[in-house]
Design a protein around this nucleic acid. Structure first.
Length: 577
RNA sequence: GGCCCCUUCGUCUAUCGGCUAGGACGCCAGGUUUUCAUCCUGGAAAGAGGGGUUCGAUUCCCCUAGGGGCUGCCA
């Protein structure tokens, strides 16, 4: 079994691509097959420097590295299509010779006119019958045009009156009427193949047995199947994955934020619109539509009585709110749609990454795996090995799955909570150093034990518990004003005193000391605990008070208590005066 | 416009003709707890509509509607 992931280096690899790579990887791994990376860079105009490196780095971070690919090696290389350029032309010409393809010489303008007319009149063969090509021109003319080196492409000659049947491993039997197929370009004027040609040749030569790819390829699979047949090659098995869709609008739209989104969308609309637009009017209309967020798709339906502006706005909102998950959605909705940060050129082209957000790679993959697949059991958390074992194509669903970032958060939280404390400590070390803090691995291990149930993403360890690494710089004044009583000051001093006398400053000792003091003096926990907590951390939120104190250490605790009580009085006095 | 795919709670989904329609995220309520979080218990929440087939349809078929994709010398 040989499977390939074949992205195009036109930008960062997005999350849908990662899922496709994952499914390919899982299936290969499960059946002892080979997982191959192939770079589909046949469009020189869309090549983006750094994109290929990004793809490889992303796969590496995810832990789903191919065993054949560019920079990796393998017997079926090279693995960049630009480096296999020579291989494609001969097959395109072979198809011409065997009558399954033809030369075409149409100019860009002619072609566009033909395509528009074809669409308007539902004809699929206009380019063939009315264009300039080796079917309509004389042999001399064709020879002359080919010799002159003018704009020549090779087009597929779609057959008539055939039914093409694809047995898709996910979608089942899919039928196409060959009369609805148009004559796709196979070999471009620059000598490069199109995706269709390159993909067939490479999959054949690389002995790919299973093509697992996004559903957007399903319509062109009829063409691919025909190409295999006409070239006399056995075709691989196909499996077309359901798409990952944008989050449901009513998952993030609510009464409070429609103004915000109205403003955001109207700015985007203005940027896209040509000519002047009445910004205020656009924004108001958008908000009006958005207000009906519970049945937006009905609201956004175009009506005859709508003005052109209304229609434009509705179309814009429909594109922005429905359909395939796109790179823009991340910035719009505040979550990453790429595995790694992509810096690009300027802010418009920069995108956040799951890695930088603090995701564990396998948590992200576990989350992505469930977007379109499920094991049929109630298990949701899978180790890498378990997922390889459980995965199968049969359990991939047919319908598109909406991206739900909240669920993604939950997956990561589960991973963090289950992670070994020392493992967390090791991962925290570089983050700690980057912040300029000093902490040992042992300290961080205990710290992880205290904090991991309170954290969703790694950076939060340091953000929500910075007080373990630096002095408390702000106290929760509201709570102090409410709960702190100056007359309890002697008690706090006495607690400090008792703590200072502890020989072993551990969680149990600290707990029994403080609790013992409260009980013997008939105080309430509520009068003491919150104040101690604020004294040590500045906030009422946080891990177990005694564990926190133990980790901080006796000296630090006594210092913090001393400093805090002085400040508490000042805060309390401020309020009174 | 044409072609193709899809349709169970807000979201991800289970169900392969017998269903009081199950689970998870999120939400709400309660409990445990020194706070927060975790954890536990409970709750609201779904089979797009219409026809068939069948003793029986969420499950099979058809139509309609809705959603999605493709329709590029992009992949």
């Amino acid at each position: 079994m040989r499977l390939r992931f074949a992205p195009s280096p036109t930008g960062p690899l997005h999350i849908g691509g990662v899922r496709t790579a994952l499914y390919n990887y899982l299936l290969a791994k499960k059946h002892g097959g080979t997982f191959i990376l192939r770079i589909e860079d046949t469009d020189q105009t869309r090549y983006v420097p750094g994109a290929e490196d990004y793809i490889v780095e992303a796969l590496r971070w995810c832990g789903i590295m191919p065993t054949e690919g560019p920079g990796i090696g393998g017997k079926h290389g090279p693995y960049r299509q630009s480096e296999r350029k020579d291989r494609y032309a001969q097959y395109a010409h072979q198809l011409v010779e065997s009558g399954y393809a033809y030369f075409a010489f149409d100019s860009e303008d002619e072609l566009q006119a033909l395509q528009e007319r074809a669409m308007a009149t539902n004809q699929t063969r206009l380019i063939r019958t009315e264009g300039k090509n080796s079917l309509t021109l004389s042999a001399e003319e064709v020879a002359k045009r080919r010799a002159s080196g003018e704009n020549v492409v090779i087009r597929f000659l779609a057959p008539s009156d055939e039914t093409i049947i694809i047995e898709d491993l996910i979608k089942g039997t899919v039928r196409f009427d060959s009369n609805t197929l148009d004559d796709k370009v196979l070999l471009k004027a620059d000598g490069m193949p199109t995706y269709h040609m390159a993909n067939i040749v490479d999959d054949h030569q690389m002995e790919i047995t299973h093509v697992i790819r996004g559903e957007e390829w399903l319509p062109s699979t009829a063409l691919h199947s025909l190409l295999y047949r006409y070239l006399g090659w056995e075709q691989p098995q196909f499996a077309h994955l359901p798409l990952i869709l944008k989050p449901s609008p009513n998952a993030f739209l609510n009464k409070r934020n429609i103004e915000h989104f109205g403003e955001k969308f109207s700015q985007e609309f203005a940027k896209k619109a040509e000519g002047e637009v009445d910004a205020k009017k656009v924004q108001n209309l958008m908000i009006q539509y958005l207000r009906d967020f519970k049945n937006l798709s009905a609201t956004l339906k175009l009506r005859d009585k709508d003005s052109n502006l209304q229609k434009d706005i509705k179309s814009f909102l429909k594109d922005a709110l429905f359909g395939k998950l796109s790179k823009r959605d991340g910035a719009r909705l505040g979550f990453p749609v790429f595995p790694l940060l992509w810096e690009g050129n300027g802010t418009e082209d920069a995108f956040a990454g799951f890695r930088e957000t603090g995701f564990e790679p396998w948590a992200m993959l576990n989350f992505l795996a469930f977007l379109g697949w499920n094991p049929g059991t109630e298990q949701e958390l899978f180790s890498q090995d378990e997922l390889v074992e459980a995965f199968s194509l049969e359990r991939i669903g047919k319908s598109g799955a909406r991206f739900d970032f909240e669920k993604g958060r939950w997956f990561n939280q589960q991973y963090v909570m289950r992670m070994d404390n020392r493992e967390i400590a090791k991962r925290l070390l570089p983050l700690v150093e980057a912040k300029g803090y000093a902490a040992s691995e042992d300290f961080l291990t205990d710290f992880a034990g205290l904090m991991k149930e309170r954290v969703t993403f790694f950076p939060e360890f340091l953000e929500s518990a910075a007080y373990f690494f630096e002095p408390v710089n702000a106290y929760d004044e509201v709570t102090i004003q409410k709960r702190y009583k100056t007359e309890n000051k002697p008690h706090f001093d006495a607690i400090s005193e008792q703590l200072s006398e502890l020989a072993t400053f551990d969680t149990a000792q600290i707990e029994s000391t403080i609790k013992g003091y409260i009980e013997t003096n008939e105080l309430s926990f509520g009068a003491i605990f919150p104040m101690l907590r604020i004294a040590l951390s500045g906030t009422t939120k946080g891990p177990d008070l005694f564990g926190m104190a133990a980790l901080l250490g006796k000296e630090e605790v006594l210092n913090r208590l001393k400093k805090a009580y002085a400040t508490f009085d000042a805060i309390k006095n401020e309020v009174i005066s």
